[in-house]
Design a protein around this nucleic acid. Structure first.
Length: 772
RNA sequence: GGGCUCAUAGUCUAGCUCGGUUAUGACGUCGCCCUUACACGGCGAAGAUCCAGUGUUCAAAUCACUGUGGGCCCA
């Protein structure tokens, strides 16, 4: 009998044809019904090649969620978005065109960014499609579109009107060379040599003194407290005492804090506003009032007394001299210090307070905790990340950024009285280039306005994704059907940002939770277990891998290697070896394609046994799919298909299926069971490897797509796994015996069949050519 | 400094919730074999003091405590 499938292996080239078919047949189209399964898909940021292999794995798995839900009979809405706001594209554009953002006309710069994004986006969509993502590509959205930015601005305006937004000063990173604030993401650390200055501080009303070491003596005038480690016995007698700061003669209190390291310097630390990020944290935690020692011009302010107007470095030199003259200097050491520097100018950053907009969040913490409790996390352990974060929130959310490529903050200020004016929601505003929508200031009647130039933190945009996809404020009927959406899949490292901010914003705007389930994935690590990143240079580009091996191989690797929720290592060789399983599946199918598909047959003991094992597999897969943990079905299916079905069952019934020395009825029992088992395997595997299962399904079982099928449900057949063990032990015994006698596998041999396997005697005899 | 998390053969991984098996499977390695689905295959072999220590127990990879090392997040 010639097999219907003739090729000896799965050819990944077929994936392209299948993709085309799916597109033509529109099998993943969505029409809203009363009950929908909506995925709050993370919009990827098109950051250019190489794309992150961990991200490719992540999106493959999100697609498995969609396919699992579809096969469970749900009406799946799987929107696709592209995140296009923020810093990366600005840096990319500056590099690409060798320009500086602030030295380029804003409109022109934005156009360059947009063009860059368009190119990167096209490539990204192509990769996503070729991965087999069954999303709604025809209606993909962009976070920098007019509609999206209108939503971001409208939600801001609503919150502004509710009094949830305010202006405040907070410390910011400042780069003197490029003259701008910079984001934490733009800071790198370099080991720079500097002087560690040991200064003498007097204890008030005594003649005792303590020595304090600092690399920033010029900030003495901004010193607010001295800290020592609570376990440091050298200072225990001084706790709570007043200390006189040298030069300024200000009085500060000595207190304990665990962040003071006994081994560094003298063990006592002066806390100034702001030497480094640690100072910022301490000021916040100890609720100290800041002293601004360095101004926006990069020079010492008037609080520095005689050092006013000097640059910090000059002030440092002079102050060391003065300390020495005054006998207040103990010693100076040359040290190497890990210093935060601007990624681009390579100069040390300063931390200075600047005025920014804040969104209130401290008061919402309890409500968000409650919402968090109502949401099911997959895996449950990652709920803790959110809860820990909520515990540690102690400031409101700074939402303004001094950047260009983002959603503009919709505010105009009266030129005369500075009163801010926020326009009506529902439109997209660009205050930096547009006229104020009102003609007269309601407060002072002036007719001149200045537009706000700042943009929002990009999380202001991303945090309303569930509202955008459910057409909040755009289509009430649609919104009612779709919101709250069903599931938020996302990576572990942005629970504190994306997940939390979404909860906060959606609660503030709708009073409801945005989704009922959150699905959290770990990150992709390199072969040595380090997080992959472009800057480390250890990122693997998924595209060549997918092109070479096919999306299904990649997807099966992702499912079988990534235990859900845990970090995973990426190894090209491992991905490649996954292909073997698809080959196995292909060849099993090829073998079965020589037999007709029949509806029934007389089942023998062997057939009943494999169907019991198959039912066990269905149960196991169901368990995994219900948790959206694809590791469970992937491992179970591979194990069953390869080591039970192919290795033992097929070998046992081969002769029977060919009808050699068996009745037609017995033969049909085998053929029926073979097909029933394979078709079940294909359906179970369809969410994980949609291409090969689609191809084999159509070759063997149906003209219609496997992705329109309902998932198989367990029949609760009694477990027979003890028999599996005995069969495989017996088969091994025969194979070993033949080997030791130097016999070929087809040679006959005399072996005793154990009593427990007598039911299988006829099949075993024909399999091994056993003599009576 | 705080938090989360992990630790099982050269590599990856199951088992740990609820203690008792010869510690699972895969990749890789080695040996034999073209047996009419598959050499991208089959069969077999070697390879692990289950991170360390202490405790509980008749019995610990599994439970408890302490420590060490890695990773990530936050500061």
């Amino acid at each position: 009998m010639e097999p219907k499938i003739s090729e000896k292996a799965w050819n990944p080239e077929l994936e392209k044809k299948i993709l085309q078919q799916w597109e033509e047949e529109k099998i993943y189209d969505f029409t809203p019904q009363d009950d929908n399964f909506t995925i709050d898909t993370p919009p990827p940021y098109p950051s250019g090649r190489p794309w992150h292999i961990g991200a490719a794995a992540h999106y493959s798995q999100i697609d498995m969620i969609a396919r699992t839900a579809r096969m469970a009979g749900k009406n799946v809405y799987f929107p696709i978005g592209i995140d296009r706001n923020g810093l990366p594209v600005e840096l990319y554009t500056e590099k690409k065109h060798k320009i500086r953002m602030r030295e380029t006309e804003r409109g022109e710069f934005l156009n360059l960014c947009r063009d860059a994004l368009d190119d990167l986006e096209a490539e990204m969509l192509l990769i996503m499609k070729s991965l087999g993502i069954s999303g709604d590509f025809a209606n993909y959205y962009r976070t920098d579109s007019k509609e999206y930015r209108t939503l971001t601005q409208s939600t801001f305006i609503e919150l502004w009107k509710k009094g949830e937004v305010y202006l405040a000063n907070r410390p910011n990173n400042y780069d003197w060379v490029s003259g701008t604030t910079i984001a934490d993401a733009e800071i790198t650390y370099e080991d720079l040599s500097t002087k560690l200055v040991y200064m003498k501080f007097k204890i008030k009303d005594t003649d005792q003194e303590i020595v304090i070491a600092s690399t920033r003596p010029e900030l003495l005038c901004a010193c607010r407290t001295i800290i020592v480690n609570p376990e440091d016995e050298r200072y225990s007698q001084y706790i709570g005492k007043k200390i006189i700061v040298p030069i300024t003669n200000a009085e500060v209190e000595l207190r304990t804090h665990h962040s003071a390291q006994q081994e560094f310097g003298s063990g006592a630390v002066m806390v100034c506003s702001y030497g480094d990020q640690n100072d910022v944290a301490l000021f916040r935690e100890l609720e100290l009032e800041e002293i601004v020692a360095i101004g926006l011009d990069g020079r010492m302010t008037e609080v520095a007394g005689e050092y006013t107007g000097l640059k910090p470095k000059q002030a440092r030199t002079k102050i060391i001299e003065d300390l020495e003259t005054g006998g207040l200097l103990d010693k100076v050491e040359d040290i190497v210090h890990r210093t935060p520097v601007s990624e681009r100018s390579k100069t040390p950053i300063e931390i200075i307070p600047m005025e920014e907009y804040y969104l209130k969040q401290k008061g919402a913490v309890e409500k968000i905790k409650k919402l968090g409790q109502e949401i099911t996390f997959h895996p449950p352990m990652h709920k803790q990340i959110l809860m820990n974060w909520l515990e540690s929130i102690n400031i409101d959310w700074p939402i303004s950024r001094r950047r260009y490529y983002g959603t503009e903050i919709p505010i105009w200020y009266c030129k005369n009285c500075s009163e801010p004016h926020v326009p009506e929601p529902g439109k997209y505003y660009r205050p930096w280039e547009e006229k104020c929508p009102i003609s007269n200031c309601p407060k002072c009647d002036s007719t001149e306005f200045v537009g706000e130039e700042r943009t929002f933190d990009t999380w202001m945009d991303s945090s309303v994704s569930p509202l955008f996809i459910s057409k909040f404020n755009r289509d009430d009927e649609f919104f009612k059907k779709v919101y709250p959406v069903s599931i938020r899949p996302q990576a572990k490292d942005i629970v504190r940002t994306w997940l939390y901010y979404t909860l906060l914003r959606c609660e503030q705007l709708t009073g409801k939770k945005p989704w009922s389930e959150a699905w959290i994935m770990g990150y992709g690590l390199d072969e040595k277990g380090m997080k992959m990143s472009k800057s480390k240079g250890n990122a693997i580009d998924p595209l060549p891998v997918i092109e070479k091996l096919g999306a299904d191989t990649f997807r099966f690797w992702s499912a079988s290697e990534i235990n859900h929720g845990y970090d995973f290592r990426c190894n090209e060789q491992k991905i490649e070896s996954t292909k073997k399983f698809l080959s196995k599946l292909w060849n099993v199918s090829r073998f079965l394609s020589s037999f007709p598909v029949i509806e029934s047959g007389k089942l023998g003991a062997t057939d009943k046994w494999i169907l019991a094992e198959l039912d066990k597999l269905v149960k196991e897969c169901k368990k995994g799919y219900e948790e959206y943990n694809f590791f469970i079905p992937a491992i179970a299916i591979r194990e069953f298909t390869w080591n039970v079905f192919a290795a033992h069952y097929i070998e046992m019934v081969k002769a029977r299926a060919y009808g050699i020395e068996f009745s037609d009825e017995e033969r049909d029992g085998a053929i029926f069971t073979l097909h029933k088992t394979l078709s079940t395997i294909l359906k179970l595997l369809a969410p994980i490897t949609p291409f090969i299962t689609e191809h084999l399904w159509k070759e063997l079982y149906s003209k219609d797509s496997i992705h329109k099928e309902k998932q198989v449900t367990p029949e609760n057949i009694e477990d027979q796994s003890n028999i599996t063990k005995e069969i495989s032990e017996f088969n091994s015994k025969v194979w070993n015996e033949k080997k030791s006698q130097n016999l070929s596998l087809k040679d006959s041999i005399k072996m005793e069949i154990p009593e427990s396997l007598l039911e299988f005697k006829k099949d075993l005899k024909s399999m091994h050519n056993l003599l009576d």
